[in-house]
Computed example of a mutant assay.
Amino acid sequence: MELIIEALNGKDTHGFNVDSIFYHSKQGWVVIEFLRCETVRPHESSPNRYWNRCWRKVTALWKLTENLDGQFYWVTFEDSRKQFSILHITGVDKDHGITFSRTNTDFKGFCKWYNELNDNPGKLW
C-alpha cells in the first residue's frame, strides 16, 4: 500500500487491496477481509457500525465475490488475540449495509478455521 500511496502523490485511490483469496475444495472462491479492532472489541464489531466509511470497499469486495461465485468473510480481531469474529457476509446493500452470520471465537478457533481453508485447496486446472 505504501508504494501505491506514494505513486498517487495525494490523490484518492480508486482501487482496493484484497487481504486473502483462496480457492477451496468445497467452498470454491473465498474472499477474506481482515480488520483490526481498536475502539470496539471484535465480538461487538460490524462493518455496519461505520458503514459510511467502509461501504465502497465492502461493496467492491462483494461484487468481486459475486463475480467469482464465491464466499465472503470479514474477520475482526484485536492485537491481544483474545477475540476474533468471523462474519460470513451473505448480502450487501449500499443503502442498508451488510447481512451476515457471525462466529465469535479466539485465536485458537480462528487458527482452526483459517487452516481448514488453507489445507483444502481446490484444483484450478
Rank of each mutant, 00 (worst) to 15 (best):
E2H: 11
E2D: 14
A7F: 14
A7L: 08
L8H: 03
D12F: 12
H14R: 15
G15M: 08
N17W: 15
D19G: 07
S20Y: 15
I21V: 14
I21H: 05
F22A: 02
S25I: 11
S25Y: 06
K26D: 12
K26E: 09
Q27G: 11
G28K: 08
G28R: 07
V31E: 01
E33V: 09
L35G: 12
R36V: 13
E38A: 10
E38S: 13
R41E: 11
P42T: 03
E44T: 09
S45N: 08
S45W: 08
S45G: 10
R49L: 06
N52S: 10
R53S: 13
K57M: 01
V58P: 00
T59H: 03
L64W: 05
L68F: 04
G70D: 05
G70W: 06
G70F: 04
Q71N: 14
Y73L: 05
W74P: 04
V75D: 03
T76S: 03
D79W: 12
S80H: 06
R81I: 15
H88R: 11
I89P: 02
I89W: 00
T90E: 02
V92M: 00
D93M: 11
K94N: 09
D95Y: 08
G97Q: 02
G97S: 02
I98M: 06
I98D: 00
F100C: 08
R102N: 01
T103V: 11
N104Q: 12
F110Y: 01
F110V: 02
F110E: 01
C111Q: 10
K112C: 07
K112N: 09
W113H: 05
N115I: 10
E116G: 06
D119S: 10
K123Y: 11
W125R: 13
